[in-house]
Design a protein around this nucleic acid. Structure first.
Lengths: 219, 219, 219, 219
DNA sequence: CATGAATGAGGTTTCATTCAT
DNA sequence: GATGAATGAAACCTCATTCAT
């Protein structure tokens, strides 16, 4: 009863090690099994295939991350949108600043804590997934953030509708969304722990906010 | 004499196609040769191994890129350093702004033109090199930029020496260097041509400058 | 007590499905168990191995079929033999015709009804058994029929003993036996139900009888 | 130069042996290579995959067989059709008999000779191909013969058009077509050589002709 | 009666590379 | 310069079967 999942655990551990060292594609099922002291058949009893094995390593963490990101940015998007529907122009910009950015640190803090709570899995997902179905994860997260940032950008620019967005607007919004995700990735992959991550995050946020205003105020 | 380099050219063309489609690791030497209408033996006459083949595709472009980046940022670094050695504090910041940023567009323009002049090879290097010895290229370029940015940061912060740099300073400098490179990559991979790239670059620079000031001015 | 045979039944059902769809060799024990919602261990409690599982599916039907064929053809063989031992030559041919063929429809009808009563199992046996120990079933049945047909052939040819059979005689007897079985297989696999099978059987019998006379009367 | 295709030949020989002994599905690529004293990679230099290997063994023979069967039965079909378009009813039946059957022996002789000329390959195709793309070969040949036999049946029945064919007619035509092919298979798999095959064929043809008349004349 | 776990051998196919000619 | 042939290792995966519990 106690050691009933010993093998599976061992397999997952060894898989984690192998994937972390070699990346998804170069990781060898044989190696993982050999390391775990088990035949390949045993692995295939627990996991459907290589992808499933990788999935078992990251799925839970990924869902949690997703919940946090979608959750927060959706909340905000709704709030921003509500305000964007009101009349006074000044208040919009003020609010965007007050609500959009000042809250950022809080959100970021949660994200970062989560990232570090699952540091190794996150590392796998962000830098070792090439060849698996998770290889586009950052892009997917960027997409989610982008929706939110588009609303915020519209509000700050004083646009009345999405239709006023130029090609250039869209491009820079995409970039800033991308950069937002990249900041998280950077912190996750360059800081030792959450405490340090949060500390560095302050500058990162200053950078981002500065960047936003740079863009918004540029002619 | 005439067709003796025909085969090599064909091979390189087909290799470019294969690597571009599948990435370094999934690319198949056999496929490349089949496509080129040549046996694998022939390929190994011209190239030492898979890595060498890839290298032949990208080496020249890479060296050119290197020259541009190193060249420019080194020039600047020298100039900035000279100024940093002078006394007046005000002039330093003013200069950093005047010289550091205003010139950025010029440099960026050159880089971008170069990127688009070798768009396909650059694409290979930036997004398809995983598994080859070039997979860390962006990191290497970041390192180069970082030297320059460190000088600039010191100047703008009014530090008197490198020794005043805190851990946080170093971290954000690294991030901004990374982001600078990322901006180039983003443009190279998201714009159709140099003209569009340059157009989008304006906002990108506004973003970066804003970011810098955000960081420098943050308490 | 009640559900103790539930599992076995379920297993047999799923085995039937799997064997029918993929044939003996390609059928997967794992699949069968998965489909039955049971582990492979359970299957091996009820059945010795793959072959035993297949056997359990077909054994009963096979025995019944065997009984019918052997039974009937043996009866006939005895009857024909008795007549063959009598003297009058004419009566032999007349009888062979009168008794041998006219009864065929009755026998065939019974066989066909049986085949369709166990259509699915018969289908398994006749077309999906390759790789199992039943793959030669048709040959075995042919052998049984052949004994009978040999007697009948001797009678119709007016031979006095088995020894008069030439190599050619034996060959065509074997063929006709084979064809007889093939007719049953053809009907079992090409007709929807017994009724249709019986209807088509008329022509088949006309064909066979015609064939026999063709052979008997040929120089 | 002389032994340049030694390996391929060896591989084909061993493949022939393995397929003949175990059938397509149970045949093992590894075994074939081991037997040939070659690594699996070598096999995959010459053949695309298992199916291609099997195909190389049978393709040529199969095409030849096809040519013979299609060729002959098409000729006949044309001839019969031409006659069927003429007026006198009697002549049609007479002709069908005279031309349709009397020529059968000649055609059969050619087919049989061909079968025995490629006895082993034919054996492979007819009894060992299950699991490969050739597993339905007999059915395909039956289809080809069936077209011809349908014309012949119409002529002998005195029908004026295909539309007069009942379901029963079609069924028995299919059967007789099937049986025709089966006769060839039977001979190919039961006779030692062409000479014996041809000898046995006489009775087989008598059987078939008798069968046809049995069917045609049955009420 | 059945589970869950594991074996071990085997399956086909692909890979980058080598080398005599 | 290039071919054709071959290597040998490795890839992922599936199989029927066993057995302690």
């Amino acid at each position: 009863m106690e050691n009933e999942k010993e093998t599976k655990k061992k397999l997952l551990e060894c898989a984690m090690k192998e994937f972390s060292e070699k990346g998804y594609m170069k990781a060898s099922i044989r190696n993982i099994c050999k390391e775990a002291g088990v035949t390949t058949g045993a692995l295939y009893f627990f996991f459907k295939d290589k992808e499933d094995l990788f999935g078992n390593l990251v799925a839970e963490t990924l869902m949690g991350l997703n919940k946090i990101i979608v959750g927060h940015f959706m909340e905000e998007a709704t709030a921003t949108k509500a305000l964007a529907d009101s009349d006074s122009e000044i208040s919009i910009a003020a609010l965007a600043e007050a609500q959009g950015f000042d809250d950022d640190m809080a959100i970021a803090r949660e994200v970062i804590r989560y990232l570090f709570k699952h540091k190794d899995v996150i590392g796998l997902l962000l830098t070792k997934a090439q060849g698996s179905c998770y290889e586009n994860l950052p892009d997917i997260m960027v997409d989610k953030v982008e929706t939110h940032y588009t609303q915020m950008y519209i509000a700050m620019k004083g646009y009345k509708s999405k239709k006023e967005l130029t090609k250039e607007d869209k491009f820079i919004i995409h970039w800033m969304s991308h950069d937002q995700i990249d900041i998280f990735i950077h912190i996750a992959t360059h800081c030792k722990n959450a405490a340090e991550g949060e500390k560095q995050m302050k500058n990162m946020i200053a950078y981002m906010i500065g960047g936003w205003y740079g863009v918004i105020n540029s002619k």
